[in-house]
Amino acid sequence: MSTPGISELTRLRATRPEAITEAARRRRRRPLLAGNGRMMIIAADHPARGALGVAGRPHAMASRLDLLERLCVALARPGVDGVLGTPDILEDLLLLGALENKVVVGSMNRGGLAGAAFEMDDRFTAYRAADIERSRFDAGKLLLRIDDTDPGSLATMVGAATAVTELAERGLTAMVEPFVSRRVDGRVRNDVSVEAVIRSIAIASGIGATSAYTWLKVPLTRDVDDMARVAEATTLPLVLLGGEVSGDADATFQRWHKALRLPSVYGLVVGRTLLYPPDDDVAGAVDTAVGLL
């Protein structure tokens, strides 16, 4: 069967849902780390949390066809190793043939909807470890936000520990994204001070029955010079969370470049910043980020 165009996805889903399983079975896989031993992953799991805005554009991610087109452009660029997403997005990309020889990371807990009263109780509503294994994907990503004043954080932590254990039992990587967080004026804010990032790493490193397959996805601290202290907080492999690009994009890219020089940092995970750059040049933004590796 030929690869469907984006406009044909709905018809294919309606008439041949089994095509998703068939595409997953055929997909050519690759090692987590290849080539230069670094990893560039495009993140696209924001919509499942109801987070559709990008840098002043509140509904930028509302069009699924537009998002898929941007993802296909990004994944086709040299040096892009893979993608992180929820089942709906990854299955579309499977049908489009965009995941061949790519690292595929399934996003697991999306229940903490952006702005919801229960945001800190981030239930596992997307992939389970068994689903990631069955789909022949390579890793599972989970968000672990820790708010000492919100009991929902404990439920999230227990779910995260279970996911880490179940992924490891299958020899699959757990990519854990930890934050010390708090609710301010009804919104959850992540603390990226060096002390908070180190504390979140200490907690995330110890969850689950084994850390053998655990990687940590960590943010840049406010002062990039402090990232050396962050890297010393664990022996687990690290990837950087790219986050938002400031008004001075060159300065942001230089901060990423400096942090990527640390020996325990193996790559970069960036989403909306590269998929929706101010000039809408997805290829150019992705190529710039790849060059930092």
Rank of each mutant, 00 (worst) to 15 (best):
G186W: 02
G111H: 01
P87A: 06
G115V: 04
L94W: 06
D121M: 12
D131W: 00
E133P: 00
I146D: 02
P87W: 04
A48N: 07
L154A: 10
P47L: 09
I20D: 01
D147I: 05
R57P: 07
V197Q: 08
A76Y: 04
A161D: 00
A43P: 06
P87C: 09
I20C: 10
A231C: 15
A155F: 09
T173P: 00
A231F: 04
K217W: 12
I207Y: 03
S193P: 08
T221H: 08
K102V: 00
L241M: 15
F124V: 15
E8I: 06
L142S: 07
R229Q: 14
L84H: 02
K102P: 00
A51G: 01
A228L: 08
V105S: 04
S107K: 07
G140F: 03
V197D: 05
V290K: 13
P237V: 09
W215I: 03
R272G: 07
G97K: 09
S246T: 10
M157E: 08
L67F: 03
P278C: 07
L216V: 11
L33P: 01
T210K: 07
D287T: 15
R13T: 05
A76R: 12
S205K: 08
V282R: 06
L172C: 01
S246L: 06
E177I: 10
M1W: 13
T221S: 09
P277T: 07
G85T: 04
G112N: 00
S181G: 11
P47Q: 03
D281L: 12
A228N: 04
L75C: 10
A76Q: 12
S7D: 12
V103P: 01
A233V: 05
L172Q: 03
R57G: 07
M39G: 04
C72T: 14
D138K: 05
V180F: 14
V180W: 14
G35H: 14
N101S: 15
L71N: 03
G79M: 12
V265K: 11
T3L: 14
A60N: 14
C72P: 00
A48E: 11
D226L: 06
R187N: 11
D45Y: 01
G112H: 00
A212P: 02
L240I: 15
V103Y: 01
V245M: 14
G56E: 10
F253M: 10
W215D: 07
E91K: 11
D279Y: 11
R110Y: 06
V224S: 01
